[in-house]
Design a protein around this nucleic acid. Structure first.
Lengths: 126, 126, 126, 126
DNA sequence: GTGGTCTAGACCACG
DNA sequence: GTGGTCTAGACCACT
């Protein structure tokens, strides 16, 4: 289930978008599966229906879901591939940030890799 | 020189803070060096002086720079060590993000490391 | 056969109305021919019977079809003439839209006619 | 100035989008020009600021305008080209509709062109 | 001043 | 039941 962090600086509708993307990627919702209705999800997450609506709308704009009139929201066929690609793109952005930081710290590639491995291992342990 | 992206979701004052931190880390400004005046920097970056002021203020709050009345802003003695530590922390954050994304993609550690190395190499080539 | 687009902004009952009108105009159904029963059409189009019912109701309201109790829906005598007039009206609406767009693009009449001919030819080729 | 038709079935925010696109195409707002602020436009058009915001948001999503933090919305460089292309696409859609209608009316190309010319002339006279 | 987010609540069309 | 639109009004961060 999607968890909302009310004190996070990232907007609630954005958290919902990311949560849905994660669930679709994880296979909770497969292609052509129906998503929870806006109203249902709103009460489940204790947020205003408008907020859910906005999240669903953006997911539809990016081709992750589509609406059938009067029936609800459904996962598109190609959504998983798209999301995988998108996720890879985000990973790249983070790595680029890391490289930029490493540069200002005058670290060489070996050192960066070392730090990365250390944190990676530490994180996976959790 | 610091580059400002006026349309970025990250606040301009934040962009200036990070830019200054990187320049100090990179040695452009050493301990007790004088930073550009608020007005000069505002003109150079085409930004409202209030925005520069806020950035400098936060840098002073975190002990990276200090003000001498009527003389301007200067880099503190211990700033480099602090910034190194801080930079490492930011790198960790990015790595944690990467791990989170990798998890939703069901990637194992090997795959993550592989992607990381690939992008790292590609970025360093530039 | 009528094709339904469940994600289209145009209501399904409207799509059915337009589809039926076109089939009658094209001669698939002649005057006093019996239309498919609501239930049959609902199954064929994978649509809620209420939706078919609403479409038939509106077609009856506009005098295109009529109901015989217990026997179903039938095409009226004068429907073809009415539909021709109506179709011409719809064509006009589209042309008016085209003119409006052309105006905002600052196109003169020659240019509009040229574009029209090009697309017309291209479409007819199919 | 943009005029809102409150009784139109097309949503107000959509009318605003189209109105803005028209004004940009017509050269009322050139590249890098600042659009009216959300609040100002809201009082001018007597609609809720949220509605303007939604329109501007979509214009930004489609690359027609961009926001500078704290400064407002501005027209993008490439917006005019994009809008021209988009307008042409919409014209095509209308023509395709016309062809479909013509087909069900069993009109040949000559007849369609004749109708088109007639309505075109009649409209331009206005 | 600028836009961004969110809630509450209303009304509507569609299936 | 479904989503879509709109208003009113509040609060926030940023320039």
């Amino acid at each position: 289930m999607i968890r909302i962090n009310e004190s996070s600086p990232v907007p609630i509708y954005q958290q919902i978008i990311e949560g849905m993307q994660r669930e679709i990627l994880a296979g909770v919702f497969a292609a052509d599966d129906r998503l929870p209705s806006i109203r249902d999800l709103a009460v489940a997450l204790k947020v205003n229906p408008n907020t859910i609506s906005r999240a669903y709308q953006e997911l539809a704009n990016t081709g992750t879901i589509y609406f059938k009139r009067g029936q609800g929201a459904f996962v598109t066929q190609k959504s998983t591939d798209d999301l995988l690609e998108q996720a890879r793109g985000q990973m790249e952005k983070h790595i680029i940030e890391i490289v930029a930081i490493a540069r200002s710290m005058n670290l060489d590639r070996q050192a960066v890799r070392k730090i990365f491995d250390a944190v990676l291992e530490q994180q996976e342990a959790k």
